[in-house]
Design a protein around this nucleic acid. Structure first.
Lengths: 358, 358
DNA sequence: CTGAAAGCGCTAACAA
DNA sequence: TTGTTAGCGCTTTCAG
């Protein structure tokens, strides 16, 4: 190696087929040599340890800059240090909620110099008998599980057993099987949100409100039921569905054929889309003969016809919050006590109105 | 907190705040001791190296199983070995395409024992002056860029310069700025797909077809234009838009107000949803006065009202293909020459019909 | 066919 | 305040 400056990949390309190895990284030793200090001092500077006199510090920093030094996170992690990586564990990133939560997670991770390792729960592999260690970059790696279905909730629990401190289930609060109030769980106040939406529908004059619910979200159900009870209304059986368009369509089918059903609370915008289709096929006019309120306020809500009345939920903020909580539990910083996400907000659009006249 | 029942966290929790270290992993040395061989032999077995007599092999394997040994990938990578990790680089996982591609990637990665590192391009950080090394787990890490917009395309190009072998742009072929025919790029035959969709619309009797296009997808535009030209039809200016619902709605606005526009080819289902809304606001009936064909066949296509005529594209397969290609380029296996994804397919639903009578 | 030695890049512990 | 010694878990030489 002669000059500096080159970094990139000069002659290397021709290495011939297999795993081209990059031009020997600049290591701490290199920096140390240039700065005329020991590797240890470079380490201290690199990690912002106290007790390095300003003069040397500057010298080391200069050498780092000159050489384009970047610490090798693998080596750092190997000695028990921090890989500076969060593992996001989930079963699907396609649903709006999951995608947004992930985005929030990634954003704050990056802001703090963390990288994101993404692990998917295998759909086939059953129950808790998953090999979680295989899902992690290394044992003990901090993970945030983005919990929104049975598989992810089970995973959150199982992980707790293996890794006491480092797991946080974003969106988990209010899910069956996730201990409520656990300090490693983060989620919206689903009970209040559902109650509010239900009251809104009641206020429009509906006799009662039906619920197309994700069976996992017990707090939503509780909020819905109690709002009904408080108003002395009958509580119809909740109808279970997954949080997908198709599932919504199928689950809604019997409901929309029942003229008694005039107001419907849906688990998500995706579900509501399916409901809209089912209603149309059953000849139900929305909102003329059927009102719909959903949750999420994803980008589709605004453009559907009719546009969806829905509760806007800040999943991105939730993702950010999950990361903060994780760092905090890892002993990083003090608790970030400012509220992390925007308050939920019922956005009234076109799918809601008074019940049909009898 | 007193009770039992709460399972989890045995004695470990009390370690006191910071990074609880898990109960010392079992290492190669441990296995070696139990098997009565040297660590080196364990390594050989672990990596399937030849030249280990069957008897020892079995013994080592038994010891591994007994101890629950898992190789430490960080240590392995540190010595120049393979981290067994793919980095997916993209700007957003929310769009259906990106989400599905990612899924495919993750699926085949897992099947081969790889993990996935997810890196997001920073929206703010401009141009190619991004610090790509910072986006990678370690220098030289193999990455698949899921390219679908300017930022990702730029990233794909920039990465090439740094890492000759290991990048593959899924979905990149046919994007401006990605060298066509490059053997590190994988994508659908967008030209043919767009031409087919255009011909379909022409066949319905439309005088011409307008195009709400992602300006990056030149091959789509080429296919569309040439289908028009082949049929001796006028080629109207393509209207640019991003691949989002809102962008579709805005971009479609002038188009749907123009009665001359009777057929519209849209960049994605998301865009088409926005178009549907714009059409509705302009009082255009779909498909009565305006026909729409989109691309993707995402879950929403089927449930929109009217249901979307769209070209189904197998992004999941694309993701799988990208991973295979990557492995192959890394010198892994032979080329997987079986086609990796399902052929595109025009699914005719409810947004298409003959043009309005004049 | 198997083992021993050396070292990847880093940090904890101790010494100076 | 700084340097030295060790060693994380693994793989690559090179010997036996």
């Amino acid at each position: 190696m002669t000059d500096g400056l080159d970094d990139e990949t000069p002659a290397l390309t021709r290495t011939g087929g297999a795993a081209v190895r990059t031009a020997r990284r600049v290591s701490m030793a290199d920096v140390a040599r240039v700065a005329g200090v020991s590797a240890q001092t470079v380490s201290r500077v690199s990690n912002g340890h106290p007790g390095v006199v300003e003069a040397t510090r500057t010298r080391v920093l200069a050498a780092m800059a000159e050489l384009g030094y970047r610490p090798n996170r693998l080596a750092r992690a190997l000695v028990g240090g921090d890989l500076r990586t969060v593992t996001a564990l989930t079963s699907d990133t396609a649903p709006y909620r999951a995608a947004e939560t992930l985005r929030g997670l990634v954003a704050s991770a990056r802001d703090t110099g963390y990288s994101l390792w993404l692990s998917f729960l295998d759909e086939e592999t059953t129950t808790e008998e998953t090999d979680f260690t295989a899902l992690l970059p290394h044992p003990g790696a901090p993970v945030v599980v983005i919990a929104h279905d049975e598989a992810t909730v089970a995973a959150a629990r199982a992980l707790r057993r293996i890794q006491p401190v480092s797991t946080v289930a974003a969106g988990g609060r209010g899910l069956v099987g996730v201990p409520d109030g656990a300090d490693w769980v983060l989620g919206f106040d689903e009970r209040a949100d559902a109650a509010e939406a239900t009251r809104f529908l009641l206020g429009l004059g509906h006799e009662t409100v039906h619920h197309l619910a994700n069976p996992l979200r017990i707090h939503r159900m509780a909020g819905w039921a109690s709002a009904l009870l408080d108003a002395n209304r009958p509580v119809p059986p909740a109808v279970g569905c997954a949080s997908t368009v198709q599932s919504g369509r199928e689950a809604a089918d019997p409901l929309v054929r029942d003229p008694e059903v005039t107001a419907l609370l849906c688990d998500s915008d995706e579900v509501a889309l399916g409901v809209l289709r089912a209603a149309r096929e059953a000849g139900r006019d929305v909102p003329g003969s059927l009102s719909i309120v959903a949750f999420d306020d994803s980008p589709i809500a605004d453009c559907l016809i009719p546009a969806l009345t829905t509760v806007a939920l800040d999943y991105r903020g939730l993702g950010r919050g999950a990361f903060e909580l994780l760092r905090q539990r890892l002993g990083g910083d003090a608790a970030p006590d400012a509220p992390v996400w925007k308050a939920p907000r019922l956005i009234v659009r076109e799918t809601t109105g008074p019940p049909p006249r009898r």
